[in-house]
Nucleic acid binder design. Structure first.
Lengths: 188, 188
DNA sequence: TGCCAAATTTGCCAAATGGCAAAAGTTTTT
DNA sequence: AAAAACTTTTGCCATTTGGCAAATTTGGCA
């Protein structure tokens, strides 16, 4: 669980007692490629810290196309934050793109941690905010880029994701068709 | 200042004493169309609540194009959150698109409010998170949309912005050229 | 009111991307 | 190892968008 603890310590201080408590509240979970961590229509009741593997968050648009909203890789938390906080059914799927090793926190565990560890909320808020700002900062420039530039930027921003993710997921994240992405790849 | 107070009350409870303190800490500011609330290269030291008017947040990409990252309209807070929190120079401009009436909070005022009002941080965190989630949710679908659909979606999502914003700003937000946007408009 | 500057529209053509279906390549299953 | 299922590449052509520059419209100011 060192990855998790080290990650948390980037955002605030924790003493050994607090660290032990966090470790006790975390539950190890393996999720096989293709399986869902949470699904549209259900209220998410867990948050995952990804130790190994890649998630994606996706949904269906009005045309019925499956859109990958973003990827989440190792050393990050994954959750449909909106539905989780508001306790409303999600409109998104959170899916394992590769076999994943997760540390899972239930709503109850998180409540306990929040009540027991004075710095907890502050740490979580910093993490949340950083993750969201990063998403905006990744998406925004892509709008003005053409297909090739989007792909190249993706390679820069996620250097170790491109080869581990199916073309179709990547294409729907980049907002281009599979065939265009295939051609772009070839042209590089 | 009712707009501000009502907005805050959506995110948490405040008693009259707390409300009075918030009012005392807010400073009324008029910003004329085209002027900057904060600029790239400077550390932002203020947060604005927009009572009247429209802001945009923009930056220059590597090709030198000016990109509008997003618009902020009435009844919302505006700030380069990343630079503000980390106290690092901003890479973005925050500009008044129309004449604006603002309520401004300085870093010091915010610190006072945070120290005095126990619910303050929680309220601000909820507001921040909601604003960021909204940005992601607006940007993500646009990537898969063509120019016309992007414009139509924009009209839906910001029904009262399209006519108050110059074409060039809107085009750079939508990730299409001015001339394309002009043609799209005509075709509707 | 009239002039100037800025913003928007338009024409023309080149380049990029999409849509669809078939072919080629991979992976999984039995 | 062969078959089946899935993923990726490719060809062909239609459509969309970009780039550039000129024309037009709009808005602000003297």
């Amino acid at each position: 669980m060192d990855k998790l603890i080290n990650y948390l310590l980037e955002f605030g201080q924790l003493n050994q007692q607090q660290i032990d408590l966090i470790k006790r509240k975390a539950q190890l979970l393996e999720l096989k490629k293709g399986n869902y961590f949470s699904e549209a229509g259900k209220i998410p009741r867990q948050v995952a810290f990804i130790e190994e593997g890649i998630f994606r968050v996706c949904y269906y648009n009005s045309k019925g196309d499956e859109i990958t909203k973003y990827f989440v890789d190792e050393n990050n938390f994954a959750v449909d934050i909106n539905s989780f906080n508001q306790k409303i059914p999600s409109s998104e799927y959170v899916q394992a793109v590769t076999d994943c090793t997760l540390l899972v926190f239930s709503t109850e565990s998180l409540n306990d941690l929040s009540a027991t560890i004075i710095q907890w909320d502050g740490i979580i808020n910093k993490i949340t905010e950083k993750a969201l700002v990063e998403k905006v900062n990744k998406l925004s420039p892509m709008l003005a880029e053409d297909a090739k530039t989007r792909y190249l930027s993706f390679l820069e921003k996620f250097p170790n994701l491109a080869n581990r993710v199916p073309l179709s997921y990547l294409a729907s994240y980049l907002g281009i068709t599979q065939s265009s992405l295939s051609r772009v790849r070839k042209s590089i």
